[in-house]
């Protein structure tokens, strides 16, 4: 009872702070400071139609690198926690009777979903979307595969190879930015191209493809680790 009332007092205190924040909030009319710079010069400096992509990949590229690192660490910690002994043969993990219709349609749908993911991250600098969303869509395609076609296995070696390759190339492109252009992860190592076409905005499409591959393989790895846990007794 004492505990509950303490929690209640804490929540009420927080609510009072929130309420005062809410009441003192006045919506601003115009962009200020660094956002204004992004909006005014983003087109000339970066050449990406989607300004959010420009901020994520170039202006705040370090944040994204850190984020991808955090995701990588999470995936590896999960893999470490859920160490599955692969020595057990797959014979005793009887494949559950699955629906024929779902299996057949999944075979049609999975390539289309992967294609959609690739489309989303290749066009990340023009339309809403980008590496993270595309990677998540690819990961959900693999989830469909795990559910619908349980007898198919996915090779962890290929996953980790793709992931390491994309992570390494991401950092290498960043270092190339120091050598060829103004600084780390500068996108002007390639020419900016015509504004609004697919091959524009310098290195942004390249970086987003790498991020997409990395995020997709990492999320697939997490889910595949959890899935292999299901079969283990």
């Amino acid at each position: 009872m004492l505990k509950n009332s303490l929690i209640l007092i804490l929540i009420l205190g927080f609510a009072a702070i929130m309420l005062s924040l809410f009441l003192s909030y006045t919506p601003s009319e115009d962009l200020k400071g660094v956002s204004k710079h992004y909006a005014e010069y983003g087109k000339e400096e970066v050449g990406a139609a989607n300004l959010v992509s420009a901020v994520v990949v170039t202006y705040r590229g370090f944040d994204t690198l850190g984020e991808v690192t955090i995701l990588f660490l999470t995936a590896s910690v999960i893999g470490f926690f859920l160490k599955v002994n692969h020595s057990k043969d797959d014979e005793n993990t009887a494949v559950k009777k699955y629906s024929e219709i779902l299996g057949t349609s999944a075979k049609i749908l999975i390539p289309l979903m992967v294609l959609l993911g690739v489309y989303v991250f290749i066009n990340g600098h023009l339309t809403p979307g980008g590496g993270f969303q595309g990677g998540a869509i690819i990961a959900s395609a693999f989830v469909l595969m795990f559910i619908a076609l349980p007898q198919r296995k996915i090779s962890h070696k290929v996953l980790s190879a793709v992931e390491s390759f994309s992570g390494l190339s991401y950092v290498l492109i960043g270092v190339l930015g120091i050598i060829l252009a103004a600084g780390f992860l500068d996108n002007q190592i390639l020419s900016l191209g015509t504004f609004g076409s697919v091959l524009s905005a310098g290195a942004i499409p390249l970086i987003y493809i790498l991020i997409g591959l990395k995020v997709g393989t990492e999320l697939t790895g997490i889910i595949s680790n959890l899935k292999e846990l299901q079969n283990e007794q």
Binding site: S99, S105, I108, L109
Partner: peptide
């Protein structure tokens, strides 16, 4: 085409 592929399959799976 997408609606034709996904809609019946998802409802089939729900019913199953």
């Amino acid at each position: 085409l997408f609606v034709l592929i996904t809609n019946p399959v998802s409802s089939h799976i729900l019913a199953r």
